[in-house]
Amino acid sequence: MSTSSKLPRLVISAGEPAGIGPDVVLAASQRDWPAELVVIADRGMMEARAALLGLSTRFIAYNLDIERISNAGTLSVLHEPLAVSAAPAQVESQNAAGVLAALKRAVQGCMDGEFDAMVTAPVNKAVIADSGVSFSGHTEYLAELTETPQVVMLLAANDLRVALATTHIPLAAVPTAINQSLLLDVLRVMDADLKSKFGIASPQISVLGLNPHAGEGGHLGMEDIEVIEPALQAAKSEGINVSGPWPADTAFNKRLSDQTDAYLAMYHDQGLPVLKYASFGAAVNVTLGLPIIRTSVDHGTAFDLAGTGDADPSSFFAAVESALDLVRVR
Rank of each mutant, 00 (worst) to 15 (best):
E80N: 11
A126T: 08
W246M: 10
L272C: 06
E67L: 11
V286F: 05
D249M: 01
Q108K: 09
A165P: 00
S322T: 00
P313V: 01
F316G: 07
A235S: 14
N124G: 14
L64K: 07
G217K: 06
I20L: 11
P17H: 12
S29P: 03
P230L: 15
Y277W: 07
T146K: 10
F280Y: 02
A101F: 01
A278M: 08
F317T: 04
H268F: 03
N211K: 08
T120Q: 09
L171N: 09
A41C: 08
A83D: 13
A235G: 02
P8H: 06
T250S: 15
V99D: 14
E80W: 05
S243M: 05
M111A: 09
M1N: 10
G113E: 12
P17E: 14
P247M: 11
D159R: 07
G54M: 15
V152A: 13
I293M: 07
D23K: 06
I66A: 15
I20K: 11
E226C: 03
L171A: 08
H213R: 11
E67Y: 02
H168Q: 12
A165M: 04
R188E: 15
L264S: 13
A323W: 03
L264H: 08
T120N: 13
E229V: 01
V284T: 10
M153Q: 09
I60E: 15
L82N: 06
N71R: 15
M190P: 09
G19C: 12
